[in-house]
Design a protein around this nucleic acid. Structure first.
Lengths: 201, 201
DNA sequence: CCACATCTGTAGTGAACACTACATATCTGG
DNA sequence: CCAGATATGTAGTGTTCACTACAGATGTGG
């Protein structure tokens, strides 16, 4: 038995295009027509490959978080908790204003509030954001064990805080804030982590 | 000439209901059917009173920001920049997890990303958020003039920072974070403002 | 009580949406 | 070269959307 006609488009390249559309317009704001046009395919190809619109979003999110995790590994490799926060927030200021991408963060732009039938999308995005927060928390737990953070420091609270600032910066970026403005926010935000750091002698 | 049949519903009460629907589902996620049902009126009454869906949103935003401004006046009345930040962020932790309202903030939930035909909505929300940021900035300028903030402090950057944390907290609240989690974020965030404060003797 | 103005409820309107039926094209295994 | 399997492009499907035409109801001024 034959294996059928081969696919004429590259799934990952198409996903990159779809990701950009979701990033710019959100899940509900993105239409199948926009997605198929950006991906250079017709609707039946999209549905055969990704199931439905939500399946396409999840595939795009998988790709987004995969790339992002590579970067997060570099972030948590910084020597101290303070440097982790700085590397993360300054990096976000750069990435979220990179003209090569839509402004902001797909995990925020994708959909904070959704209508009937898409209630699961905000949860999906929140779950992906939580993964990053967990990674930060683990890193801050280590920092505390290493004596890098004060005994009174709460690693989970610090991770939540850095995560919250990241999200806030994403919203600012999407509504027009430039790189310098985001860097100012990052710069101030880092000082809260510094305040939780043990004094170096 | 007669004055016509009088309106049978109260516009402000109806606006409160509409505000809640936009708050919970976002601008695009909210349907006219949901709005009219919540408001207890029929579509023609809605359109006669508010013009169209976007006009209804703007009226709801006017009402929301009006109530919010009363509270912001109390916030900036705090004696120091640090106390302003604490009062604001702790207050937000409370308000955004108040079961009397949908979680989060209407100025965020309303719509970060919108599709074709609603591109102006995210700008509208951003403009309203910017008003609060301006108010904070003015308050921090005063704090600096009073010697409450360090000479090296940047009031605009601090205002942007507090605003960014507020937005981040709003997204967290809408995705299920409880009051305690938000209070932890607020508590950490305040320390960055503290770090910019002059030492009290 | 009548002319006029405004509101209300019913019942739609056309447009845009996510999704798909179907015929055709292109591959593999035998 | 043929049979089975999968992809593709065209052209739709039914549903839901924001919005409205229209007729009847309810008010005011003369």
């Amino acid at each position: 038995m034959g294996m059928g006609r081969p696919r004429e488009f590259d799934a990952e390249t198409a996903l990159d295009q779809a990701m950009e559309v979701f990033w710019r317009h959100g899940y509900e704001g993105a239409t199948i027509a926009q997605l198929t046009e950006a991906m250079g395919i017709n609707p039946p190809s999209l549905y055969a490959c990704f199931g439905n619109k939500e399946g396409l979003l999840k595939a795009a999110l998988d790709r987004y978080t995969k790339l992002r995790n590579v970067w997060m590994d570099e972030v948590v490799a910084a020597p101290t908790a303070r440097d982790v926060a700085e590397r993360m927030l300054m990096g976000i200021a750069d990435k979220q204003t990179d003209p090569a991408n839509p402004p902001g963060c797909l995990l925020v732009q994708g959909g904070i509030a959704c209508g009937t039938g898409s209630e699961s999308v905000p949860f999906e995005l929140a779950a992906r954001r939580a993964e990053n927060e967990d990674q930060l928390r683990d890193r801050f737990i280590r920092a505390k064990a290493e004596g890098d953070l004060k005994e009174s420091a709460d690693p989970a609270a610090l991770a939540r805080y850095v995560s919250a600032v990241s999200v806030g910066m994403g919203v600012m970026a999407s509504s027009g804030s430039d790189r310098e403005a985001l860097q100012q926010v990052a710069s101030v935000a880092v000082q809260a982590v510094e305040a939780q750091s043990a004094n170096r002698t």
